[in-house]
Write a protein that binds this DNA or RNA. Sequence first.
DNA 1: TCTGGGGTCCTAGGACCC
DNA 2: TCTGGGGTCCTAGGACCC
Length: 426
Amino acid sequence: MIALVDCNNFYVSCERVFNPALEGRPVGVLSNNDGCIVARSNELKALGVEMGTAMHLLPPFIRRQAILLSSNYALYGDMSRRVTEALTEFSPDVEIYSIDESFVGFQGFDPTTLEAYGQHLRETVRQWTGIPVSVGFAPTRVLAKLANHAAKKHPGYRDKGVCKLETDSPATQILLKQLPVTGLWGIARRTGERLRLMGIETAWQLREADPKQIRRHFSVVQERIVWELRGQPSIQLDDMSQPKQQIMVSRSFGRLTNSPQDLREALRQHATRAGEKLRKQGSVTSTVMVFVHTNSFRTDLPQYRNRTVVSLERPSDDSRDLINAAVQGLRQLWRKGYAYHKVGVMLLDLSPKANRQLTLTETSQTEAEARRSERLMDTVDRLNRELGRGTVQLGLSRAGNAWALRSEHRTPRYTTRWDELVKVRM
DNA sequence: TCTGGGGTCCTAGGACCC
DNA sequence: TCTGGGGTCCTAGGACCC
């Protein structure tokens, strides 16, 4: 058996841990730039607010009664780490799947005791971190997702917050027959539409479908879902401890801008952040992709989106190389007459730094330069880690720039910034 | 005025090689 | 008039996830 442990309304729950006055109230957490709603308390869901609702489309009567907070990722990231730590007390086999979900392996545990064990896990996580979680047990990941969903929503399970499903048990069959196929993990709107044309509308109908036929019509991804529904584990989770294969950093601007300087500064910032991520996982990159685009919602304005790829002379993890490449790419992309909304950088072709190939022409002088680069980046990373992100920057940016994020309702970073904690208490 | 950010996997199709 | 076939690698784009 495997369990999916999922934090309930995670970002909202994090905020509530530090501000109990938010309990029982309709609370939402906003995306970057306070643009749309990315997390909702049950009370806000009950008001009919959908995930991803744009702030400016939120009906006034909801805006009046809801408490809407800017997102505080430093806080959520740190709370997530604490939840994971608590989970490792219950099984050595914890796979972090996202900031608020982990699969926990319980192979070899006595199946009859699992539900009680799940209860104990919930209580412990709640007590240690303040975060409420739901637990779904099943033989496969797709079914564990379903079990978790039932543990959150289904009348028969939600009071306990734990649900265990066996392959093809009556309870499992009932849930699958009630569930639209798009409620399954891995089946979204597009695939759902095509399945409907084949007469498959419920999760149970997909379970009954011929896996080979599903593969012919779709791909191996959907075929695996059928096998998983039948209780046969077929989905491997990529090992999250493996280094990423690509690294992306991008942000929408706080307001539209057509100033090349704004774009350049934002991009320098993104390239710097990408370099930090790259070094943290011990990789180097040889290809930097840059993209820009205008705001596609502003149909009244001329639209432009483009991207370009810049190859580095040799693989690098030095932020200065990344910045140079990114700025060079931007020079090719920038066009007059557009109101830009977003720039970003992607690092592709990542490889482990340890394998770095020395080129034939590499001399001892460039070797010395590489060592200097390494020492400089180490120092920059250490200072930023210890004193807070942005303490040391490569090049200065102006205050009040157009690309600065709007974040008007952010709560203090309670668990990672002493200065902000003190401010609260005074 | 205002609509997130970051990632993965898979397939199709073109280029290229022998 | 006739104009191979099969393998591999790469890229772009679709779909999905949280």
